[in-house]
Amino acid sequence: MSIQHFRVALIPFFAAFCLPVFAHPETLVKVKDAEDQLGARVGYIELDLNSGKILESFRPEERFPMMSTFKVLLCGAVLSRVDAGQEQLGRRIHYSQNDLVEYSPVTEKHLTDGMTVRELCSAAITMSDNTAANLLLTTIGGPKELTAFLHNMGDHVTRLDRWEPELNEAIPNDERDTTMPAAMATTLRKLLTGELLTLASRQQLIDWMEADKVAGPLLRSALPAGWFIADKSGAGERGSRGIIAALGPDGKPSRIVVIYTTGSQATMDERNRQIAEIGASLIKHW
């Protein structure tokens, strides 16, 4: 067993022997301040990774656009098919120029040779490549099948209805392509620590998230040296922004954090800054 596999296998073990965790309302004060600064709703939840206990939450059962955070769930569904012998990570998928959609920095470079399922998941999570996500959605049967996968996990809230990039439209009061912070946090925890996926697939999923290259201005910008984070960000229309993450000190994750916002007129930089400040408060009061 590799060191990384050992780390993920012992996530519940280490967490069980940690000192009790206590909620700190100071972080919620910052979440509410972010709402004021952005002029928009902000949803927040913080779960203990081992027990699933909610440590703090704000608007945990209000719907927010998922945006690209759905790509972690998508690759979880792909990995479940791999575990069941219905898919192979090494299978190569070929596609054409007509398949390319807006923001496809990886797939646009491989029109000639195609990409493997493993490479597509890596591109979808680490670079948020939209064509990679659409190609992977095709392998599982489309958005409705991802929703069905989530329902089978016990998540009857999260739903995907459309493809990239239309799913980022974020129309107010439109339930399409949305989740709730509580539902997303619980589902992410199941994917990373539950028995739904094999140990190898859980490790692969967290490795992809740990290698995320496009979430630097968010929670990662607030992390002290030595902290662990595996995350996936999302951005959408109407001032929408979000991030889902597993993080913790001492090089291992111990909490799940989900943050979503929508309806702001603020710039992307300002949305990023507010999420980073929430992260800084979380870490300060850990």
Rank of each mutant, 00 (worst) to 15 (best):
I206S: 10
T261D: 11
D250S: 10
A132M: 15
Q204N: 14
R241G: 09
S57T: 10
A123W: 00
L74W: 06
V31L: 02
L205G: 08
T193A: 06
R159H: 14
T126N: 06
K71I: 12
S240H: 05
P181Q: 02
G242P: 07
T267L: 08
S57W: 02
R91H: 04
D113Q: 03
A34N: 12
S104Y: 04
M180R: 02
L47N: 02
T193E: 03
V257D: 00
E145A: 09
D231P: 08
D174F: 00
P65A: 10
Q97A: 11
E35K: 04
E145S: 09
E166N: 04
S281Y: 10
L167F: 03
P65G: 09
I259M: 14
A246F: 10
V78C: 12
M180H: 00
Q274V: 06
E145M: 11
F64S: 12
G279A: 12
S57V: 10
T27R: 07
S104Q: 07
L196Y: 05
I45K: 03
Q88G: 13
A84L: 13
A183Q: 09
R202Y: 12
Y95G: 14
T107Y: 00
A225E: 00
T107K: 01
N130V: 05
H110I: 00
A245D: 11
A230V: 01
P60L: 02
M67A: 11
I283W: 12
P172N: 08
G236Q: 14
F149L: 14
Q37V: 06
G194T: 03
G242R: 05
R91N: 09
P181G: 11
M180T: 00
A280V: 02
G251S: 01
G236F: 13
Q203E: 04
K144G: 08
A276N: 13
M153W: 14
I206G: 11
L205S: 04
A183H: 14
E56R: 12
F149T: 08
L47V: 02
T193C: 10
V258Q: 13
I140V: 15
T139Q: 12
G76E: 04
G39P: 09
V72D: 08
M184Q: 10
W286N: 13
N130A: 02
E210H: 12
Y44R: 12
V29T: 07
R59L: 02
A276F: 07
H156F: 07
K284S: 06
L38G: 13
L167W: 08
D155K: 15
A170K: 01
S240L: 08
Q86R: 10
G76Y: 00
E62H: 13
K53A: 08
R220Q: 04
I140L: 14
L282K: 01
G39S: 13
P172V: 04
E119P: 14
L120F: 01
M268G: 12
N134T: 07
L247R: 02
H110C: 12
S128I: 03
L150F: 08
